[in-house]
Computed example of a mutant assay.
Amino acid sequence: MAVQQVSPDGVEIGGRIRSARALRGISLRRLAADAGVSAGFISHLEHGRSGVSISTLRNIAQVLGMTIAELVDGEHSQGRGVLRREDRKKVQAEGGLTKYLLSATPLRNLEVYAGELLPGGSTGAEPYSHGHAQEMVICLKGSVEVTVGGQSYVLAEGDLVDLHSSVPHKLRNAGSSTAEVLWIISPPTPD
């Protein structure tokens, strides 16, 4: 079954594919190879000269880190827009830590959290690890002690530590006022 080239709002699926590919820096040839089709097919699709089957559209969407629905309706093609502070998803953890998810779900390429640590607050008594990703911890306000694989660093405002999420690590507010931290993790980790 081939998908119609034009969505209900009149915008071509091919144009959305081309925009998504450009936004992600994926070449036409790479998209074609990873989706299991020819570069000529992708070119024809992007220019509205070809229809596409559901299975091929699913493959293309997967390579682009999108869903078929996003390609068809285009609502999320430019990101989700503004996230107001009061609309952040909040996790109140033990130990004086409040963590806020900033990245859009479902998580695809990047996982971003903001956090507040009360004086003496921490991510827990024991270091933790998760997945196999690159993680950056940035101190936005106050000071935090970051322990990575047994080595400790005290970060002041504007300092960061870059680590592998598979290495056990933990954070602790090393100051006398609430500390603010930003976590950036790529790719997102499942646990």
Rank of each mutant, 00 (worst) to 15 (best):
T105M: 14
H169K: 01
L110S: 11
A114F: 11
D87N: 07
G40F: 12
V63W: 13
S177M: 02
S176C: 14
G96I: 15
I42C: 01
G48S: 08
D159R: 13
L163A: 01
R29I: 14
S186D: 05
V72S: 09
T147S: 14
V167T: 10
T98V: 10
S166W: 04
A39C: 04
A104R: 09
P187T: 08
Q92D: 05
D159P: 07
T147N: 12
L45D: 00
V82Q: 08
G10E: 15
S129T: 06
P8N: 05
Q62L: 13
A104P: 02
V72N: 07
N173P: 00
S143R: 09
L64D: 03
R84V: 13
Y113V: 03
G150T: 02
N109E: 15
G115R: 00
T56F: 08
S77G: 11
T67F: 07
G150N: 03
G14F: 15
E135G: 10
S166H: 12
D73G: 08
L57C: 10
A35G: 11
G124I: 07
Y100E: 11
L118M: 12
T123Q: 06
V148Y: 06
S55G: 08
R58H: 11
G14P: 09
D87A: 10
A104D: 03
E94Q: 14
T98C: 14
A114Y: 13
G158V: 01
V37T: 10
G51V: 03
R16P: 01
R49S: 11
S38I: 13
A33K: 15
I13Q: 10
T56G: 07
Q151D: 03
